[in-house]
Design a protein around this nucleic acid. Sequence first.
DNA 1: GTAGGTGCAAACCCTTTGCAGAGAG
DNA 2: CTCTCTGCAAAGGGTTTGCACCTAC
Lengths: 151, 151
Amino acid sequence: MSRHPELVASLREAGHRWTPQRESVLAALAESARHLTAEEIIARVRVRYPYLNKSAVYRNLAFLTRLGLVHQTDLGHGHIEYELHQDPHHHHLICRHCHHVLQIDHAALATLGKKLERDFGFQADLDHFAIFGVCKKCQTRAAKTAKRAAR
Amino acid sequence: MSRHPELVASLREAGHRWTPQRESVLAALAESARHLTAEEIIARVRVRYPYLNKSAVYRNLAFLTRLGLVHQTDLGHGHIEYELHQDPHHHHLICRHCHHVLQIDHAALATLGKKLERDFGFQADLDHFAIFGVCKKCQTRAAKTAKRAAR
DNA sequence: GTAGGTGCAAACCCTTTGCAGAGAG
DNA sequence: CTCTCTGCAAAGGGTTTGCACCTAC
């Protein structure tokens, strides 16, 4: 029942089980290139597995996160977002106006990570770095509407 | 009724009012060196203004944020945090294990901001930069407990 | 007097939890 | 047969909203 024989085997060793719900949550993330919210995951899974319960999704997301297969981030949108843990590191530029998320690759931040480690002993999440700000589009729009923010 | 005569004047021009609630929210932030949650703000204000309602706090925080006087961030703690907008830029290293927030100053990130602007046209919030990761303390602790995350 | 603000309580939204029953091993 | 996982429904927690009243101006 699985396309992840090694994973399933190691789960069993640890006393866990491989249920269709669990598999379908993982599959939904695997098929998506971007972050998904719990709600999006539920929607996607239900296409082929209609009676999935949301608690099962939340519990499995927590479970898969503990396993290190899934990464969760709170990008400040009012909900948590999940994605498959991937090795090709990437980062996110999050526009605080339009909430658009631009993925950039690791090169842009390589030196910063070393600096933080050296100066503060802080090991930054460099496979998942969230940078808030204003995107190109919104910058030009904001310049026009600015002046008097209070209104 | 105010220690902010210019602010109050400009609010009035825009058709707004300067209420004790509004003032006390701003004062609570001004007296704190660090981030405050809405709940903390309510607690502090009530010391001298006991019957403040939470909706007024939320509404005023939104209002002051629109004015640019207050900055709000979601550091992924499950609630929004607020602080007075200040010019001496600083940033936050947030440990995803112990949730400790370490403030660091702007110098550590000066070059990164320029790079993001140049490469992606993205104007990063360089007076409020949130970096998730693992702090020194938790790194050593995690190294011991790791190995088998699934259990 | 007239909006803009406040207080209150209820609604909201996403997430978590308790518990009985189902099903993987 | 056992013990983990599921489904359901209800609780949780922070935040938002509707509405009548209040008050800054």
